[in-house]
Nucleic acid binder design. Structure first.
Lengths: 357, 357
DNA sequence: TTTTAGCACTCACTTTACCCGAGTGCTAAC
DNA sequence: GTTAGCACTCGGGTAAAGTGAGTGCTAAAA
């Protein structure tokens, strides 16, 4: 019988914790000492495992649903797992190639791209996939067009450098002179190109006088056009595969289900929440650009017993949106991180192709 | 003792049926004879009610969940109720005025309009509200604009007479000459104005030669532009308040819930289904433009124990989309019909203002 | 002939009791 | 330090019993 050094002790503990997490992720049932002893080659008796497990419980890594049940990993355990133990998987080559082909093939329209992406995320994860496209606030203005539909109706089209297009029809009480429109368009394109939308609107409001010196009576008109066409929109939130969560044993009881539905129902809220949460400092780890938020790490009470794996996607080196998956805490983090990472790269590439060509 | 004429008999039966439906709509629990006798001034003993009810059951208007339970209205009963008994309510004046103000005030952007509308429907009904905006297939082309963003990237903007705008960026391998673009734009606007989108695309493909006689090498380019810019998009489906259904006693058991989630998860499908169903002949009734589909009247299995109250909304006298609510069969049809009718009018008006001014 | 009272019967639902077994914590032996 | 043994816990499943709303039927009353 050999005496274990402190290092060995800790190492064993870690391996055990890993085993528990693994098993729980697989089965969803609290894992007991005997089960563990037989399933994993730990060469220890159930009794010993019980001792170590109770230590782990004291340290806050495991918890007991009730006295006579096996152990369940806590948020802290998952966090430890993600940070220190987990190996980030790679997608199977086949899978990756198929995805790559799909993205190269038929991703033309930005909305389709986002929709398919959230579907893809859902399909790969078997959980809920989401994509958050922020409003244009952060995007930079690339091009402005003002198209007279009728004398009193103007179609304003704004194109951002991220390839997003926003349009807005503005109706006036009196006809808008074409010359005025031309001037305004020139002004807009000269002055505002490259500026962030939010800034552009303000600049525009200031500069609108320059043009209205010639068309004094049109001042208000220009103001209104600026105000309405540049009004902030809130961005889109795509959510797919919400149903898949309901088949999981994790969300079986009525209450759980109810709150889940409620959560998913409020898409808009959810989008805001996620984007806010993600905007903050990412819990660290070896996860490249991918963030993992486990259970109570999510500020929103609705997400308290879920995990979110997310990553921002990038155009021209700038992060412009967020995508990821929503699933039970008990998820295969290593695979999920790989999925989110891969998809976020693909989306970034596709957007790049759409805007830079 | 007076002998009842056949008319009186039938009248009584009808009143009874109405009472049962009413009570069931209110409580959601099978209604028994005693309950009915005490709650409604029918001046009949439970025993008599039982007799009449069993007749109604034979005729297919009522059903028994099990031998010793009260009666539950069948689809047929609801249908009869909607067609023959129900008084279409009016919204309370206050409610209506508030709605009116809201719609007049801040409905500028078409997408906002639709989103708010589905939210409004959900709020008024306490069930799920939906709005279906068809693709542009049916809309007529009003204006086409081709904007060069960069030499090799063209932004095509299509405006329909219903005020919808569709845009699409098309990238080419080689620069597109501005003159060519101008020609194409002129051609498009002259030839295609007023044509339905689907037709426009075909016409365009045919006529594209006319222009490419001058720019032979650009033929393929024009083709591609036409094909991609005019590609059919599928329309949007807005769905709000899905969660509210889950609090209803009607969908409490697991299986019910699961299938409901599944249904709502497939927004796209749902949109198609509804639009298909609604396109067909509306079950008649005194319900103005509002259609009511009860339970199995819906072809889609997922809707079998729900009811759909819907109405199309109109621009320039042409129905261009569909909106309504989705709820349990046991719903206050009279109010729901009023809600859907009112909202559909408001949307039609708002769209009218957006397009005609 | 229609309505009503009376009554036996049904059947979902609830409550209670019970058992089973996986799993623990502790103690004492290895 | 590790393990075997053992009493104990407690959720979950199942069966039995009780409850009550509601029915269908029959026979009497109107």
């Amino acid at each position: 019988m050999r005496i274990l050094s402190e290092f060995d002790q800790e190492d064993r503990k870690r391996k055990l914790l890993q085993a528990v997490i693994h098993e729980y992720i697989k089965t969803g049932k609290p894992v007991g000492s005997a089960h563990l002893a037989s399933g994993y080659r730990l060469d220890l008796s159930p009794a010993t495992l019980r001792n170590v497990m109770s230590e782990l419980e004291e340290e806050g890594f495991l918890s007991h649903p009730h006295t006579s049940a096996g152990r369940v990993p806590t948020d802290k355990a998952y966090r430890f797992y993600v940070d220190a133990i987990m190996d980030v998987q790679h997608l199977a080559r086949l899978e990756e190639e198929r995805l790559d082909r799909e993205y190269k093939a038929r991703m033309q329209e930005i909305q389709d791209l986002m929709l398919s992406t959230s579907k893809t995320l859902s399909a790969l994860s078997k959980y809920t996939g989401f994509v958050w496209t922020p409003g244009m606030e952060k995007a930079r203005l690339q091009h402005v067009e003002l198209i007279p539909l009728e004398p009193r109706r103007i179609l304003a089209v704004l194109v951002s450098d991220t390839g997003m297009v926003k349009h807005r029809i503005v109706s006036f009480d009196s006809p808008v002179p074409p010359a005025f429109l031309g001037d305004l368009r020139t002004l807009l394109n000269e002055d505002l190109r490259g500026k962030p939308f939010s800034e552009a609107r303000d600049t525009l409001m200031d500069h609108v006088d320059r043009i209205t010196q010639r068309h004094m009576d049109l001042m208000e008109m220009a103001r209104r056009l600026a105000r309405e066409a540049f009004s902030t929109n809130e961005g889109d939130f795509y959510l797919e595969g919400a149903g898949s969560l309901f088949s999981l044993p994790d969300f079986q009881n009525q209450e759980e289900m109810r709150s889940l539905v409620h959560l998913l129902d409020e898409k808009t809220h959810l989008g805001e929440m996620l984007s806010k949460e993600m905007g903050e400092t990412a819990p660290g780890g070896k996860s490249k650009g991918v963030m993992v938020r486990i259970g109570a790490e999510n500020k929103s009470p609705g997400l308290r017993n879920m995990s979110v794996v997310s990553s921002s996607y990038v155009v021209n080196g700038r992060p412009v949106g967020l995508l990821g998956i929503l699933g039970p805490k008990r998820m295969e983090y290593s695979r999920m991180v790989a999925v989110v990472d891969a998809v976020s790269r693909l989306v970034s590439q596709a957007l790049g192709r759409m805007t830079e060509k």
